[in-house]
């Protein structure tokens, strides 16, 4: 009997190869392939209809796509920066707490424990123009007698979404920066005091450089998160009103599953991935650079 002899390294790697191809490789190749077809979910045989780069050309010349792209970048920039600032502030304050700090740290994580879908529903209610908490509070305080259309006005809707994003994710920055604060050696801070630094100068010249690696790690994680933002927006505004809060993935989701144009949706998806990859690479570069500044790693 002549049994097929596989080299041992291949045999050992085979389980990993099989699992990886089942969950990563095959879907990846299939979706990439389908982005070159006019594949529609309603007409399965259209998956064999090769259209070349048509979907990509269409996406790149589509105003709606670029509007969603721009909006996603805007959301990324604004939300990430504000989350970083708030998270930094939160971490600095929590690190000063001497009693009950553990409890506070746990409480800080609460927003992360909720499903984004539920957070979306919660903020949809909070910002509702008729029965929402915000309008109710504003009216009760006599600040306004109008029903402010938080989720209907284009700008306000974007603001509301950013607000919800910040509420859920500030603690990611908070926790990571807090970890960074704990890792700062005490000596350089004392040296800074003796060297004549005010509290602000100590923070600016000593604490902050030590925190930068932690900030960039948080940025890298969150940029991936926000670049694929879907759930909160889908629930709060469904990309509306009149597509004014349409982000990349709500657009792609709608194109793929509502309009059933999966080939086109996949093409847009592949373009969008580059956005996420770009931000990730950018923040990792920054991370490496800031670590190098501190003399950590190569």
């Amino acid at each position: 009997m002549n049994r097929l002899k596989l080299p041992p390294w291949l045999v050992l790697l085979l389980p990993a190869i099989i699992i990886l191809s089942a969950v990563v490789l095959i879907p990846l190749v299939l979706s990439l392939y389908s982005s070159f077809t006019s594949y529609r979910l309603t007409r399965p045989d259209s998956i064999f209809n090769w259209v070349g780069f048509f979907n990509y050309e269409k996406a790149l010349t589509d105003v709606k796509f670029w509007a969603a792209f721009g909006r996603t970048v805007l959301l990324l920039t604004v939300a990430l920066n504000l989350e970083m600032l708030f998270g930094l502030g939160l971490a600095l304050m929590v690190s000063k707490v001497t009693q009950g700090q553990r409890l506070l740290r746990t409480m800080m994580m609460f927003p992360m424990m909720f499903s984004p879908i539920l957070v979306g529903f919660q903020f949809k209610f909070i910002f509702n123009d008729n029965v929402g908490l915000v309008n109710n509070a504003l009216q009760s305080l006599g600040i306004t007698d109008q029903a402010i259309p938080w989720l209907v006005d284009g700008h306000l809707a974007m603001f509301s979404i950013i607000f919800a994003e910040i509420w859920t994710a500030t603690s990611v920055f908070g926790i990571l920066i807090l970890a960074g604060l704990y890792a700062i050696p005490r000596d350089p801070l004392e040296a800074a005091k003796v060297d004549g630094c005010t509290a602000w100068q100590s923070f600016r010249y000593v604490t902050l450089p030590f925190l930068m690696p932690f900030i960039y790690i948080a940025m890298a994680i969150r940029s991936l998160d926000v670049a694929r933002a879907y759930d909160i927006v889908q629930i709060m505004t469904n990309g509306g009103p009149a597509r004014r809060t349409e982000l990349l993935w709500t657009l792609i989701g709608r194109t793929g599953y509502v309009d059933a144009r999966m080939g086109y949706a996949n093409a847009m998806g592949y373009i969008s991935i580059f956005l996420a990859i770009f931000f990730t690479i950018y923040f990792f570069k920054k991370l490496t650079q800031s670590r190098k500044e501190l003399g950590m790693g190569a």
């Binding site: 050696p185 004392e190 040296a191 005091k193 003796v194 004549g196 010249y205 450089p209 003399g295 950590m296």
Partner: peptide
């Protein structure tokens, strides 16, 4: 007085240099 107004300087056991 805070350290900066005492006109002193200090050398620490762990050097306490600014690594960046």
């Amino acid at each position: 007085l805070p350290p900066r107004e005492r006109n002193i300087s200090m050398v620490f056991q762990n050097y306490a240099l600014y690594p960046h």
